[in-house]
Design a protein around this nucleic acid. Structure first.
Length: 506
DNA sequence: CGGCTTTGACCGGCGC
DNA sequence: GCGCCGGTCAAAGCCG
């Protein structure tokens, strides 16, 4: 504990207390005994006690404390007159008795007893002062602990606020991506349109919305409706955020992953009941970056996002964060430290298949409301900074926590455990602050290790990751790929997709 | 009324 | 050459 705490608090209060005249005499007496009758047994005992008391204070190993004590000692030597004066006052009687020193043993006894009393009195005083200082020490310790907790709470608050902001944005995007891309507001709109105007289009929309797929999506979104998905409904906070995001629908263009996106189209894709939504970056006029968002066919709680193109404008920190966390996760995959999970897929094979030339990128982000896995199929982990003009093509899988953990505490646990990846985000989003290559490398390595440990420790997360990647492969191949397919099959399929993406974008 | 969402139509690539 | 599929466009409708 305490070095900093002592330094912070005692700088102002302790020295003043220690330099009080009472204490000065006390420490002086303890360190340099006023009497030269060292052979007295009682005096020895009391002296021993004195030293032990001083030793107690020396256990406060702060350098400043030591300095203060030294000062006291020096002061005691420098102010010897004060000490001697006090003792003289008390021993005046003995001096008077020593006038008739004559060598009477009774006067020596009296003198010894007086000294003994003096020393006992001093000892009591020191004990009292010792207890008082003990109390002060504990108080300072408590203050330090309370302050520490307060600082930690404040930092946590700020972090939570940032995370909540991101959560709302991504949840908003999630809500809009149902099989028919309708949310509660569009439902209202459709209903009002059909009842007010009897619009045939609205009727058509209603017809589409009554498909089983859309019902499943509604059940997944709206807790009051019956459906199998309701059993897996996430915690209340997630639902609350989802509702808020629905209300905020008119705030488009949406700001998710750091950029502004505008939806320009939506299309049903073969082999997936959920439509694929097309977004265009609106951060800058003429920015060619587009992204596609589609729900996973196997698990509709999983979002698969594909980015294409290169931004022609400076990226906001959140977008840089996404790219940088990608780097960390890529290193994680390449490190091959992930164990095989439930026999679903060998991550080493997976990493090699995703990253056949070690030039691809994976992202695992916990800043989103759900753990988000991003696979950059074309990007070199360091390419982002070195060659910003290169084309990106990044499929992303966003997994709401209800598919991984139905408990809010588990969600927070996961978020906290992935905080290591945020570190890498901080590093690369502020490269000027980390331009020391060695330091950056060390920090990145630490963050990668943290991420690896976090993911390794969560079999649910790795299983969900495997399912999401499997979904990507099923999208690239019309044949439905079950999660438990053989790794070799998945490898071939995924490599095929990788090659397709590369050839189509370079 | 401006902006956003939805959705049908159109176009190009690819496989048979 | 034809059909399928994915991507894009633009008009219509809706909302604040």
């Amino acid at each position: 504990m305490g070095k900093t705490g002592w330094g912070l608090t005692l700088d102002t209060s302790e020295p003043i207390e220690l330099l009080s005249p009472v204490k000065t005499s006390m420490y002086s007496a303890a360190v340099s005994p006023p009497s030269d009758h060292d052979d007295d047994d009682d005096h020895k005992n009391s002296h021993r006690n004195d030293v032990s008391e001083v030793d107690f204070f020396s256990t406060c190993k702060s350098n400043e404390d030591q300095i203060v004590v030294k000062k006291e000692i020096n002061n005691s030597h420098g102010n010897e007159l004060d000490v001697n004066t006090g003792l003289h006052l008390l021993t005046t009687n003995s001096d008077q008795s020593s006038v008739d020193d004559g060598g009477s043993s009774s006067s020596e006894d009296k003198q010894g007893k007086n000294k003994l009393k003096i020393l006992q009195f001093e000892l009591e005083k020191m004990n009292t002062e010792n207890q008082r200082l003990r109390g002060m020490l504990s108080q300072v310790t408590n203050n330090y602990t309370a302050l520490k907790l307060h600082v930690a709470n404040e930092m946590q608050k700020q972090q939570n606020q940032k995370v909540e902001h991101d959560q709302e944005m991504v949840a908003k995007q999630l809500i809009e991506l149902g099989p028919t891309s309708h949310d509660s507001s569009s439902e209202e709109r459709t209903q009002s349109g059909s009842t007010k105007n009897g619009d045939h289009k609205a009727g058509k929309r209603n017809g589409r919305e009554n498909t089983p797929d859309s019902d499943a999506w509604i059940a997944n979104k709206v807790p009051k409706l019956n459906g199998s998905k309701i059993v897996e409904q996430p915690n209340e906070s997630t639902m609350r955020k989802a509702r808020v995001s629905v209300r905020a629908r008119s705030e488009a263009p949406m700001i998710t992953d750091g950029c502004q996106w505008r939806k320009y189209g939506q299309k049903m894709a073969k082999g997936n009941p959920c439509p694929r939504a097309y977004y265009r970056c609106t951060m800058a006029v003429g920015c060619p970056v587009r992204k596609q968002v589609q729900r996973c066919v196997d698990d509709q709680t999983i979002l698969i996002t594909t980015y294409e193109g290169t931004h022609t404008h400076p990226l906001p920190p959140a977008a840089i964060a996404m790219a940088s966390t990608t780097s960390a996760a890529a290193s994680m995959l390449l490190s091959g430290s992930m164990p095989s999970t439930d026999g679903l897929m060998n991550q080493n094979i997976l990493a090699r298949s995703i990253l056949p030339n070690s030039s691809s990128i994976a992202t695992i982000s916990a800043s989103a409301p759900f753990p988000t896995v991003t696979l950059d199929l074309t990007h070199n982990p360091n390419q982002y900074q070195r060659n910003p003009n290169s084309t990106q093509f990044i499929p992303t899988m966003a997994m709401p926590l209800q598919s991984v953990a139905a408990d809010d505490s588990v969600a927070r646990y996961n978020q906290s455990r992935f905080s290591g990846l945020q570190l890498s985000h901080d590093i690369e989003s502020r490269p000027q602050q980390y331009n020391n290559g060695t330091q950056q490398h060390t920090l990145l390595a630490d963050s990668v290790n943290a991420a690896t440990a976090a993911i390794t420790a969560d079999p649910n997360f790795t299983a969900a990751l495997a399912a999401a990647i499997s979904s990507i492969m099923s999208n690239g191949n019309t044949a439905t790929t079950a999660t438990s397919h053989a790794a070799a099959t998945n490898t071939a399929t995924l490599s095929h997709i990788v090659n397709n993406h590369k050839t189509s974008n370079f």
